[in-house]
Design a protein around this nucleic acid. Sequence first.
DNA 1: ATTCTTGCAAATGATTTGCATGTAA
DNA 2: TTACATGCAAATCATTTGCAAGAAT
Lengths: 138, 138
Amino acid sequence: MERSKKDTTEIMESLSQAGLNPTAQRIAVFQYIHNDSDHPTPEQVKDAVDRVFPTISLATIYNTLNALVAHGLVHQVKIPHSGRVVYDANTSKHYHFIDEAEGKLIDLNQESITVDMNLPEHFDIQDVDIFVKGKLKG
Amino acid sequence: MERSKKDTTEIMESLSQAGLNPTAQRIAVFQYIHNDSDHPTPEQVKDAVDRVFPTISLATIYNTLNALVAHGLVHQVKIPHSGRVVYDANTSKHYHFIDEAEGKLIDLNQESITVDMNLPEHFDIQDVDIFVKGKLKG
DNA sequence: ATTCTTGCAAATGATTTGCATGTAA
DNA sequence: TTACATGCAAATCATTTGCAAGAAT
């Protein structure tokens, strides 16, 4: 989506505000997810961050991703059919389209799907995840 | 749901019709999923089938589950938030409610959710997965 | 000095695979 | 016999953890 990119200062501010010390590793990971990626897997995050920060360990990638998720800076998405795990810098409410050809994930904003629930009284709804599967024409 | 149970003869017929030899292990696994379970994990399938068939190996459980899925007799569901994998004998189109307290999965039939898609032309929709997360009151 | 973070390697958990054995037509 | 199915153990893959060493305040 047309989410505005954050420069390094803003990345550091976001981390601090979320309660995470802005270490070099965290900055690199968050900046990559926020600015330069599209639903990357942990391996893809590692590959990208390695270019800038060649000594980062995969364990630190995982720990950092978990920290970013725990502090609300990114979302984790487990794709139902493939089981793949990816990260999403779009933290506003949205849905996902899965392009079956590419395996690519595309954000769908809230307005693009209208959902009407007809559930019995005792279902207390807190969240709705929608994955639309299909192909992109043309 | 009120899906009708299948006796062993019907289980065997379903397996044969799907192109799978109705071996004792396959009968036990499919019968358990179809008649006596509610979205079991592979481990739960193993525990249940072990009672009837104490020598079955976990590898055979997995192979059998994969075969049942490949032949359309059961569906595999990867739950987006927990990442848990469960199997579902309900092969008609439906959605899922995830009870956050229990981690329990509940089938929602097609009528219980109305979805209206507003996607651009070039999205060729083939399937929609919906996971409603929440709690059960009372 | 103390606290937090990192890197490495080992541990874990889920699932798959290779292969030798068993079973049924 | 021939094909297929099973059981076991080893292999694989993703992720987490323990711990010692490093960086920052």
